[in-house]
Computed example of a mutant assay.
Amino acid sequence: MIKVKYFYNDDFQLKGFSVKGHAEYAEYGRDIVCAAVTTHAIATINSLDVLQKVEFESVEAEEGNISCIVKDDCIEKAQLLLQHFQLAIQEIKREYPKNIKILKK
């Protein structure tokens, strides 16, 4: 199961996310749930970096673990893309509820 965790600042604005695990929907290389979540996570991080030019406290991308935390002074610029990621994950979870768990921190 993929576990998605969202991180918020004191004003309840999204400041990042982490994605851990594997969906186990299908065999490696054919798992459309893993592919969808991974694609959205990496695309969001890349768009935050290249399009919005935000700075990160941390970014991690390795097998089974993707995360990013935006620096506090860049949170406003990051909201649209982080909210887009959140909506995309909610839709994937709606279609594949047994393969994704959403946590909030």
Rank of each mutant, 00 (worst) to 15 (best):
N9W: 01
L48E: 04
K101R: 15
K101Y: 09
D31A: 07
K53N: 15
L14M: 06
E55C: 06
T38K: 04
I69N: 03
I2R: 00
E63H: 14
A35I: 12
E27P: 01
Q90N: 09
I92D: 06
S58N: 12
I100W: 07
A23C: 06
V19E: 00
Y96C: 09
N99M: 12
R30S: 10
I42T: 11
H84T: 12
E62L: 09
A23E: 03
R30T: 12
S47W: 01
K93P: 08
H84W: 05
Q83T: 12
L51C: 03
F12Y: 11
C74Y: 14
S47N: 08
N9E: 04
D11H: 05
D31T: 09
A35N: 07
F85E: 11
D72M: 05
G16R: 03
E63K: 15
Y6C: 06
D10W: 04
C68D: 02
G21F: 07
S18Y: 03
H22Q: 09
Y25P: 08
D10Q: 14
I45E: 01
K3S: 07
A26Q: 08
E63S: 10
F56D: 05
D31V: 09
E95W: 02
E91S: 13
E91D: 14
I2F: 12
L14T: 04
I89E: 04
Y28A: 10
I45C: 02
D10M: 05
V59Q: 04
N65Q: 07
K20N: 11
